[in-house]
Amino acid sequence: MIDVKLQYEPIDIGEFFNKISNPHHGGNNLFAGTIRDITEDVQTTAIEYYAYEEMAIQELRSLAEEVESRFKADIIVVHRLGRLEVSDIAVLIGVSTPHRPEAYEGSRYIIEELKKRVPIWKKEFDHDKVRWGGIRDDGNH
């Protein structure tokens, strides 16, 4: 089972946990990426997410299919779009497998690859200025 989604409404964890629930599975990993208030010395108040939606769904589905075929996993990936405040859930990844190692590994793979290749962008509202992409390791200050 794979379900990938972009949505403007807040993410209801229970709704998506129910989707990956499987009586044959004992490892159910839910990862929630949330809006952090401080990065280095920069204070963030809000983030707006934008996407090339059709391609983002296609890329998310392709990522989920990789993990599904490797681990026989059930997978949900849901990413928020629009304006989010501190502590809001921006992304929820659920991976359900018979045993826990694959659930952890699959979830980690999806979030790392999502950050590299899914066409979603953030516009970060910080105390000093607005940053497209936020503060990244490549020195986008």
Binding site: M55, K115, K116
Partner: peptide, 24 residues
């Protein structure tokens, strides 16, 4: 579909220029 620099450019429906992504 993302392409590499040395991939051939063939006539297709759409070419998108994708800035560095920052989801998650």
């Amino acid at each position: 579909t993302f392409k590499q620099d040395d991939d051939p450019l063939e006539a297709k429906q759409e070419i998108a220029v994708i800035p560095p992504v920052s989801g998650g």
